[in-house]
């Protein structure tokens, strides 16, 4: 089970997303954890904003924005989307080297986030018996 996104390549911005996980009890805390994923050594993340949205088909998600700070200097700007898909959750994280780069890419990123949807059968998850009997193309 994975998050599926339709996203173009964006210059100087890394956009990553991955497998679904059980839905968190505290979605705000989880969103902050997503934004703070794989921080550089000695870094902290400052959260600057939090916004509830829905995808084009109506799945709820939160957009959280912030910066990564090392020695009181901003070294990265980050924008994350944290989705809730029934009992599961999925996240996408965009990382830019500066706030300006992230701001320029924000419309494209938000458009990509709006396409978020669950791919329940990703990674070989058995959705129905047909998956066990009929090879996938």
């Amino acid at each position: 089970m994975r998050l599926a996104l339709t996203a173009p390549a964006i210059a100087d911005v890394a956009l990553v997303w991955g497998p679904l996980r059980p839905g968190p009890d505290d979605t705000a805390r989880w969103a902050t954890e997503v934004l703070a994923a794989e921080l550089p050594a000695g870094a902290r993340v400052d959260v600057h904003g939090f916004e509830a949205r829905t995808t084009t088909t109506g799945w709820p998600y939160d957009v959280v924005v912030g910066v990564v700070v090392v020695d009181e200097r901003v070294v990265q700007a980050r924008l994350a989307a944290c989705y809730r898909f029934l009992e599961y959750a999925g996240a996408a994280l965009a990382i830019a080297p500066t706030v300006d780069v992230l701001d320029a890419a924000r419309p494209v990123l938000l458009a990509a986030f709006a396409t978020g949807r669950p791919d329940w059968g990703a990674d070989g998850t058995v959705v129905c018996l047909r998956d066990l009997v009929v090879p996938r193309s």
């Binding site: 029934l86 949807r117 669950p118 329940w120 059968g121 998850t125 058995v126 959705v127 129905c128 018996l129 047909r130 066990l132 009997v133």
Partner: peptide, 14 residues
């Protein structure tokens, strides 16, 4: 489980 033709375009959630 048993075999059937999945509904086209629908997303299967196990």
């Amino acid at each position: 489980r048993y075999l059937y033709e999945p509904p086209r375009g629908w997303s299967g959630y196990p």
